[in-house]
Amino acid sequence: MSGVAVEGRPQPAIAVVALGANLGDREATLDAALTDLAALPLTDRVRTSAVMETVAVTTSGPDAEAPRYLNAVALVATRLAPSVLLTYLHRIEARHGRERGERWADRTLDLDLVSYGAVVSNDARLVLPHPRAAEREFVLAPWHEVDPEAELPGAGRVDDLLAALRGDR
């Protein structure tokens, strides 16, 4: 699923992880989360975008009154299965004070598995690619920065999706 075996060892897949935080020491939390990602087992490397600040998005749309988010994207070269990686992401969130409650509520840390190689999954526990990734500039812009040739499986090139969101096309 994740690649071709070389000398009996599968090649790592590139997982795209979106990071966000709008409570507490946002920058320190993102830095610590990136360190945690790099320490995952069966993970060879992590490349990350610059951090960008964005307005909070709630179920009713952008909320300029809510604490602003810091967002980034990490490309994680890993041999962990997508579901196992997601479990680790949830553990990292919990270690940094993430409480799951209201959907799209303020949070100390949010780690979304946006894509995992070319894997497409509609499993109730893990939908890949992330169903709203193509609609989120705070995912697409940092992703494009760290990988200008990126493609979101089933949706197209990240640069084209970003241009469409910005009204450039």
Rank of each mutant, 00 (worst) to 15 (best):
V73H: 11
I92F: 15
A105H: 05
E53P: 07
V46A: 02
N71H: 06
T58H: 11
E102R: 10
T35W: 10
T35Y: 10
R79P: 01
R79Y: 04
H90W: 15
R91V: 06
T43I: 05
D36S: 12
R91K: 14
N71S: 07
L80C: 11
T48H: 14
V73G: 10
T58A: 07
A66D: 12
A105C: 00
A39R: 11
S49D: 12
R100C: 01
A74R: 09
A105Q: 13
Y69I: 00
S83D: 14
R100S: 04
E93Y: 03
A64C: 02
V76Q: 08
D63P: 03
V46T: 13
R95K: 14
R95D: 03
L70M: 03
R68H: 14
P41T: 02
E53S: 13
L111A: 05
T59V: 03
P82N: 06
A50H: 14
V73K: 05
W104F: 12
R100H: 07
E65K: 10
A72C: 03
W104S: 03
D44G: 07
R107C: 00
A64S: 11
A94N: 14
A50G: 13
P41R: 05
T108K: 06
V84A: 15
P62I: 00
A105K: 08
L75K: 13
R95E: 01
E93K: 07
R95H: 11
A74V: 12
D44W: 09
P41H: 04
A94R: 14
P82Y: 08
M52L: 12
L37F: 02
L75P: 08
R68F: 11
S60K: 12
R47E: 15
A77Q: 14
T78K: 09
N71F: 02
V84G: 03
L109D: 03
T78W: 06
T108E: 05
W104H: 07
T43P: 05
N71W: 04
L109N: 04
T54D: 07
T43W: 08
V55Y: 02
D106C: 01
T48E: 15
A66Y: 08
D106T: 07
T59R: 13
A66V: 00
S60Y: 08
L109I: 00
V46Y: 08
E65P: 03
R95V: 01
R107Y: 00
Y69G: 09
S83Q: 14
A38W: 07
R107Q: 00
S60M: 07
T59F: 05
Y69D: 05
E53A: 15
L42Q: 15
T78A: 06
A81T: 13
R91W: 12
V84W: 08
L40Q: 06
L70T: 11
T78V: 09
T35K: 11
E53G: 09
R68E: 08
A64L: 06
A50Y: 09
R100T: 01
T58C: 05
R47H: 11
R107T: 01
V76L: 07
